[in-house]
Nucleic acid binder design. Sequence first.
DNA 1: CGGCGGTCATTAGCACGCAAACGAATTCCT
DNA 2: AGGAATTCGTTTGCGTGCTAATGACCGCCG
Lengths: 142, 142
Amino acid sequence: MSELLTLFTRAHKLLRAEADEAMSRHGVRVGQNLVLAVLWETDGLTPGELAARLRLTTPTIVNTATRMEEAGLLTRMRDPADGRLVRLYLTERARAAQHPVEEERRRLEERATATLTDEERRHLRTALVKIIEELSPGQVAP
Amino acid sequence: MSELLTLFTRAHKLLRAEADEAMSRHGVRVGQNLVLAVLWETDGLTPGELAARLRLTTPTIVNTATRMEEAGLLTRMRDPADGRLVRLYLTERARAAQHPVEEERRRLEERATATLTDEERRHLRTALVKIIEELSPGQVAP
DNA sequence: CGGCGGTCATTAGCACGCAAACGAATTCCT
DNA sequence: AGGAATTCGTTTGCGTGCTAATGACCGCCG
């Protein structure tokens, strides 16, 4: 039986559900927190740039951005120099959510790996990196 | 930074994409292969029973079953003894897909962990089990 | 300068998860 | 026996991912 794939799926689902619940307490859904993480670092990126950094497709970012706009987390502005581009800027609410959301993320990771030793955590990390490297033709970088 | 969560998400996405591509070669989408795996073992279960075994919600199974019915993978039959129940039965096509799909699953797992030693694989497995145990209040069982 | 190809974002449509609301059938409890 | 409560499946609507098709805009090239 394909033990590992099954366990992987279950662990991922649990982690994602916990993350969504935790983020939702601060008005951020789990898929939005990735976009936020990038914009907290570099505000005013375009959907395409965000997609590249997050390894998602542009349509995914566009749809997420629309929901985030409706939720008052960001605003769209056409680039004055290049009318094809749209730049996404965080609102005050989005900036205010940074520390709470980052804290939730940190706490979840800590909780999920609470019963692992430091060595086991390192093993897990290297195993994940190896899997990613094996399946993704190329870089593992950031 | 929450390294582990990020790595986990990326690895899961890659695994899922590969799995979907592999299964699709045999007319089965990645979400359907889980339903199939259970029905290959025990045909004629109800959506509720399947949901319980797969730890998914009943609506998810119902919708997946509808798509599988349209794809000619299963048929719905009302239980003659209890009119609330619907039983899902595999078609010949679904049974024919068993060996190819199981083989794809096995190959994917093998490929993903190709650069891991047996010991690393065991480490990964126990780490996943611990995470699941930590986040899911109760059983890790089947 | 005027069209043409390339580069964007967006829209549409699908898969697959969830929760909540609904309707049908059974079971339980007077 | 007959109404109330429970147990099912289904429908609906949302979030998050994808691909393919569309449309706006820029830059280049003749």
